[in-house]
Design a protein around this nucleic acid. Structure first.
Lengths: 147, 147
DNA sequence: AACGATAATGAAAATCGTTTTCAATTATAA
DNA sequence: TTATAATTGAAAACGATTTTCATTATCGTT
């Protein structure tokens, strides 16, 4: 995959070595449409590289985050899942059924948020925005699920 | 404090007993302007009730969250801090220096978010919004801090 | 192609925050 | 005051993450 290659190039460019373990982890995370936990990455990556250790997954995710290639995603179920990072200023739209994540642009909100801050004497420097709902595929499915 | 009393009344109303440990925890959390972690609550509440155990703090926070009196706050530094819950649909504005949290109204954003979802085939059912910045008190202070 | 320095690895142990277990204590309704 | 059942704190258990360490493998240099 193209993105996967790019990540390997970036790792190399920053002095990190390219190993089988890293290739496997990068491949899995770079091509995922949903945020994955370390264990999920571990399980998925071992099909390509069975000798992989969970510790290496943690270490690789750490480096990918450091390089801004992935981003931690906070959800009700937990805050330790990772997703390929968006380019530019983007926010997340996450499907509550299948977990699929989509980025959307949030630039136009900055002014609004600055105004909200003003009203409370704050200077706003960052914001966090995430939308949760059902993607097109899951909208019909959710009705027949046991709740 | 008024809010503290109200929480105790609510606990009682739901069949929970009022104990010294609970009063101490409630008092600390209800009167805090910043989100507190279990250990922070533990340390603060022990000045009023030295025999308090950390386990009881966890259990009391659990009940307060269950009753909707407190809310978990997600931040860069961690996702296990609690704040008195806002009435109605509110969002958080948090000071990056002192941690002070203020609620603001977010009702007018719902329509906008539904539209964003539409553009990606999603039905939006929830949203998460938090602003981070500097409160009035901390704006002058931040310049003389060591970064 | 072989070498050597050193980064990276996986297994095991250590650590941290949180939860469970359990016997003793205490709030509350009768 | 008493009886019952909820609550307590200490210790043990637990799961996720980090550290330690001896071994292995990458990659620039030869």
């Amino acid at each position: 995959m193209a993105e996967s290659q790019d990540w390997l190039t970036q790792l190399k460019a920053h002095g990190y070595r390219l190993t089988g373990a890293r290739r496997a982890v990068v491949q899995v995370v770079a091509s995922s449409a949903r945020a994955l936990t370390p264990v999920e990455v571990y399980d998925a990556a071992r099909t390509a590289y069975p000798a992989l250790g969970l510790v290496t997954v943690y270490r690789t995710l750490e480096k990918l985050e450091e390089l801004g290639l992935i981003q931690r995603v906070h959800q009700e179920q937990g805050c330790n899942a990772y997703l390929p990072h968006a380019q530019g200023h983007q926010h997340l739209l996450i499907c509550q059924r299948c977990g699929r994540a989509v980025y959307f642009d949030g630039d136009d909100l900055t002014a609004l948020f600055a105004r909200v801050g003003d009203e409370h004497g704050f200077v706003v420097r960052e914001h966090w925005l995430q939308l949760f709902g059902l993607c097109a595929k899951c909208q019909p499915e959710v009705n027949r699920d046991v709740s």
